[in-house]
Design a protein around this nucleic acid. Sequence first.
DNA 1: ATCATTATTGATAAATGTTGTCAACTATGA
DNA 2: TCATAGTTGACAACATTTATCAATAATGAT
Lengths: 142, 142
Amino acid sequence: MNTIDALPKAELRQQFNKTGLRFTPQREAVWRLFESDPAGFTIAQVTAVLAPQKIGQATVYRTIRALQDLGYLKWVHDRSGEHRFVASRPGHSHMLVCRLCSKAVECSDCDLSVLEKLIASQTGFAVEGHHLEFFGLCPECS
Amino acid sequence: MNTIDALPKAELRQQFNKTGLRFTPQREAVWRLFESDPAGFTIAQVTAVLAPQKIGQATVYRTIRALQDLGYLKWVHDRSGEHRFVASRPGHSHMLVCRLCSKAVECSDCDLSVLEKLIASQTGFAVEGHHLEFFGLCPECS
DNA sequence: ATCATTATTGATAAATGTTGTCAACTATGA
DNA sequence: TCATAGTTGACAACATTTATCAATAATGAT
């Protein structure tokens, strides 16, 4: 229920090529890493894990940004306030982050439109979008 | 309606002293800066603005962290994804950030409990808290 | 008001984190 | 198979954040 389904290699290649980017072994390795753990990783962790495979840190930075732009990576915050990246699917969604195991799951169908209307009427603010992270305990850690 | 009321000097001093911290001219200068602009500042901006007053960057870092711990500073994200700090009042609240003027206003009475219950029933996730930022257009920029 | 205590300051260095450069390499579409 | 053009990794350059420490100054007690 939590881990997202593995992304077919062909689909990932297609996503890269669509925007003129190339599908390289290094980029696939980075993506596979994120796919392997729903808790996600910080940039430092990714470079550390992939260093033995001789993947340079510049490549890690570039790949993470590319995956972000494609919508396959979203960020959440540690309790320490640090960025952590998590595999996801393109499109808007919210993240539920477990306080204990750090696992992050997407919550895409949670509607905030009611709240946005309330805000509009109370403050005159025309809400166009939002970033929302929940933290708490996942079913396994409860 | 947007800018928060100026914080009395005595109250700020009290807040610092309460936790064993001291109320110094440097710390007051940092706070006054944040109080002066509801759009907030990045750390780099604060150090740049206060450099002529001979306030070291280490002091800026320390003071911002202290103000954060006291609850008087909250962070929001730029469109570029960067941290920006904004003056606020202690306690939980959400931030409304204007896309044009970057002004940030607090929205403390927006209830997410309904949404949290919905999430709990749908995912089994026990929500304990959240971080929520809205972006859009403030009344003046609409 | 004075004083001793002890947190704070600024300068500097050290440590991290991020981006730029470029020749060699390789994925891609023709 | 081939030419094109994006990609790689090593390294340098740059930016950001933290640690150190002697001198200074805010605080509570007197």
